[in-house]
Design a protein around this nucleic acid. Sequence first.
DNA 1: TCGCGCTACTGTACCGGTATAGATACATTG
DNA 2: CAATGTATCTATACCGGTACAGTAGCGCGA
Lengths: 354, 354
Amino acid sequence: MGRVTLQTIADRVGVSRMTVSNAFSRPDQLSASMRERILAVAEELGYVGPDPTARALANGSAGAVGLLMSDTLHYTLTDEVAMAFIAAISDELAPTGLALTLLSAAPRGEGIIPARDVAIDGALVYSCDMTSPAVGWLLRRQLPLVFVDQSPAPGITSINVDDRGGARAAADHVLTLGHRRIGIVTSGFGGDYGILDDPRTATLAFGESERMLGWLDALDASGVTPTVARIPHGDPHGVGYAGAEALLAAGEPPTAILAFSDAMAGGVIRAVEDKGLSVPGDVSIVGFDDNPIARTMRPALTTVRQDIDAKGRSAVQALTAAIERTKAQTGGGRAKHVLLPTSLVVRDSTAPVS
Amino acid sequence: MGRVTLQTIADRVGVSRMTVSNAFSRPDQLSASMRERILAVAEELGYVGPDPTARALANGSAGAVGLLMSDTLHYTLTDEVAMAFIAAISDELAPTGLALTLLSAAPRGEGIIPARDVAIDGALVYSCDMTSPAVGWLLRRQLPLVFVDQSPAPGITSINVDDRGGARAAADHVLTLGHRRIGIVTSGFGGDYGILDDPRTATLAFGESERMLGWLDALDASGVTPTVARIPHGDPHGVGYAGAEALLAAGEPPTAILAFSDAMAGGVIRAVEDKGLSVPGDVSIVGFDDNPIARTMRPALTTVRQDIDAKGRSAVQALTAAIERTKAQTGGGRAKHVLLPTSLVVRDSTAPVS
DNA sequence: TCGCGCTACTGTACCGGTATAGATACATTG
DNA sequence: CAATGTATCTATACCGGTACAGTAGCGCGA
């Protein structure tokens, strides 16, 4: 027995296929009694409802949006901040009925490239390398896109966080506490590793670079030159640990360390304590993100808070708006560039220099 | 100007639409020179490739699999264990070219139910309530399904972890250390809350119930009756904290506490220490899952390890196999029921009773 | 010179729906 | 009672591809 389609039901009931379609998709187009008859027969034949694929083709919308994340999907998926972002997205997406499809940027497979071959109505591009082929495909497909935590591109709506301002606030905070020997621990793909000679000229990823600029804004203004340790991307705890070790080994140890993320700050704390120093007694530490773990860490971590929920929600709103516009053929609708604020959250990992 | 389709290109090149289709999808079906001409024109017209939706309809496969998670997608997405599971899934899925679509079980939207309306080739159902309408839709759609961390259902492949055996090992461990006053902290949706009179008769979710049985297997065998605190589902840290508080307040405090998860164990540790007791000096604590945080916790957490990576990979393998079978019309292919092993990992949060 | 097989391309019929413009029959109105 | 609605259902033409069964042309062996 072949598959049950609208036609199967139509034949059985003795009406046109269109009427059956209406019974499911536009109930106001037929009489209640007819609708009931049709639904009864459908039920009897085990028909679940119009086939999503066929429906998608006919009315030109897939019912899903894509989420493209960095090549290292695995790392991203074990990162609390990224997860909170996805959670916010899914919350905001739920009432729209759109599903969220994860697109891996690294097409390890043969010829199948999700960013090119998966049916979606639009996509969020989160913290990706612009030169990635996956981003290229999305652009070529002319899909509505929203860039998040990426270098804003002309014509494409972007949602960013004031990383620079937040980093500046973090550095100002330790400066105000009297610290002058300040270390920085950061991490990323490619570029230079180890103790950086000149962090201003180093090749850094977008977010990393913004935070670096913020830290340096404040430090330069006070005439302080930080020691910067940059570790290859990897497990954040390990990265933070290695970074702190490098800083503590390099000449006079810092009395304050600014970390690229809270996850890395956790490793920094551990390394400092393993060295026999106390936090914040001997070394003050500031993280970034206000990861949930920052609050449960011991000592509770001073950090720069970004509103991840707002980030996810704005991104979805911008995307759904763009999808609407595309559907309505309303051409323009200029790309917006949103910058969400950050704020310093002072907890127990920072103290005046002793 | 309308949209560019195969036909547009065909007209332009002066060949049939089928030949253009072959140029993209079956290069061996035409001459290299013709293919080049076609690709050149396609490039010129800004044609990206065959439309995924149309292709999906024509060859009957969507190129994506669904992942249905519990109603509280938000909580799930902030849970390290669930995330590690997703990461494993996406790793295993990558080479197949299938994308992963997140299906929310709770359709807050108007009439759109992702589990019914999104185009997928099959789905993983992770730790869901079987009575959830979303599961019902997936079943009715006759999609290839794999159940993970759920009560196995006849005819549906399931992947489970030996929760019961693991819990038994955890309980045996503290018994061996000499503990006799043992507390249990668990949590879930619905059912009874507070200190449970009889944990055997309580209404518990599947995973919760399996672990409970395991703990009781061992404790009963030693004639030990545990005190069980069950807290409504929520932030695991808070849940663990509240559970431990309840145990410590209830009569003679336990010298060992078994927690439903590592995340909850974190809250338990904090509550115990806040009470002025030391871990493991006064109270030994065992978690469950071997969450990455278990290792970085202080004291490092003794826990029951489950191989989440294997869980995700087996689930994907089972699902892709089922999808293959469906495509090949190979009817049967009996449902498999996989049970992955667990193992006790002893760290610093347990010690002999003093 | 005929038959054969091969390559390269075409024609047609789907995949399973939806939009839109009719066609009917019956009720309403002046 | 004719004219106009209006609620219901139907016919047809897509949506943008792919499968499969041709057909034409050509090299080649006998």
